[in-house]
């Protein structure tokens, strides 16, 4: 079905989309959205809530009309060749779009039949997918009894029934616990090895970092930066370890002891030491063992990560706040 000479999975140019319910003074959901995704691998679309991620996915999967611009998916135009586009794609939306009153197997059978498989083929494929996603034992149980992670995996497997060329995954781990999140990540990695192109949206920097080969950062309805995770993180700044000694007098000594692990300038202010690091977990272990024998008592030691807000403040050119100054920063994990 691939059109000759088209090596791009997705190409979006100048897309504008304003919902009819948007107020006159408010900006459109997408405002000059541009995206180029090559075939193969995971492309991350990273942005905070309200940046237009879901709108972009809904347009690319033909669920939503665009106002202006052009989008090609698998070489087909989403506006005029919707049916062809739908034959090439799979969609995993923000909510697990599966029937709770049916079993996992019944869900897969139904969507298999709707994807033009024969009954026998649909059953074979259903069992294959249940096996692949670790749901073989619970396949005959009703979905309402599944955990969040299991639902997500079933949702993913439904999208894979006919082996789509391009899979859209919209915030797959929102609301999942760490174990469920890891399961979903593993499932996505498996897919990519099979040759599927994945477009993943997420608001978690860490998730994009874990999964994506390339990232486009979305803010206010347009892509504001792109590159590999490493390139983007370099723009944003490093993680840091924050230490609060019990005695303020110890601050200078702590900074001196930790200097070998610093990836940048160590800051000491407000009774804390802030140590920028490249490898968060190993640095924490190394610094902890260096401090253990020092005899210094600590109120608190924690790893901090620049939040997406920090990233976007920096990338959108607004008054770039120093991430180290943000004391409420929390790791997304």
């Amino acid at each position: 079905m691939r059109r000759d000479g088209n090596e791009l999975a997705i190409e979006a140019r100048g897309v504008r989309k304003r919902y009819p319910s948007t107020g006159a003074g408010e900006p459109p959901a997408l405002n000059g959205f541009e995206l180029t995704v090559a075939r193969g691998g995971v492309h991350g679309l990273l942005g905070p809530n309200g940046s237009g991620k879901t709108t972009a996915v809904r347009i690319m999967t033909t669920l939503l009309d665009l106002d202006e611009g052009e989008v090609q998916v698998a070489g087909y135009d989403v506006a005029s060749e919707g049916r062809q586009v739908r034959r090439q794609i799979g969609l995993v939306g923000q909510y697990a779009a599966i029937d709770e009153e049916m079993s996992g197997l019944q869900n897969l059978m139904m969507f298999g039949r709707l994807s033009r498989l024969s009954i026998r083929e649909a059953r074979r494929r259903a069992h294959e997918l249940l096996e692949q996603f670790g749901l073989a034992e619970t396949g005959s149980k009703r979905v309402s009894a599944y955990s969040g992670g299991m639902r997500r995996r079933l949702d993913l497997s439904v999208a894979l029934i006919v082996d789509p060329q391009i899979l859209f995954v919209d915030e797959p781990t929102t609301g999942l616990d760490p174990a469920g999140r890891r399961d979903v990540w593993d499932a996505i990695r498996t897919l990519v090895r099979g040759g599927t192109t994945v477009l993943l949206t997420t608001q978690y920097l860490e998730e994009a970092d874990q999964l994506a080969d390339d990232i486009s950062m979305l803010a206010h309805g347009r892509v504001v930066a792109g590159g590999t995770p490493a390139e983007l993180k370099a723009q944003v700044g490093d993680d840091w370890i924050e230490l609060v000694p019990r005695e303020t007098a110890d601050i200078a000594r702590v900074a001196e002891l930790l200097a070998p692990w610093a990836s940048g300038e160590i800051r000491s202010a407000h009774g804390r030491v802030q140590l920028p690091v490249l490898d968060r977990t190993n640095s924490l272990l190394a610094t902890a063992s260096a401090l253990r024998d020092s005899g210094i008592a600590f109120e608190d030691i924690s790893i901090r990560t620049p939040t997406l807000d920090d990233v976007f403040l920096q990338l959108t050119g607004s008054t770039a706040t120093d991430p180290l100054a943000d004391q409420t920063a929390a790791s997304p994990a």
């Binding site: 999967t61 033909t62 669920l63 049916r83 739908r86 034959r87 794609i89 799979g90 969609l91 939306g93 923000q94 909510y95 697990a96 779009a97 599966i98 029937d99 709770e100 969507f111 709707l114 994807s115 033009r116 439904v158």
Partner: peptide
Amino acid sequence: SKGVTDRFRSLPI
């Protein structure tokens, strides 16, 4: 509300 309608709409049916 559960996204099942969207999933149907994303299929070539």
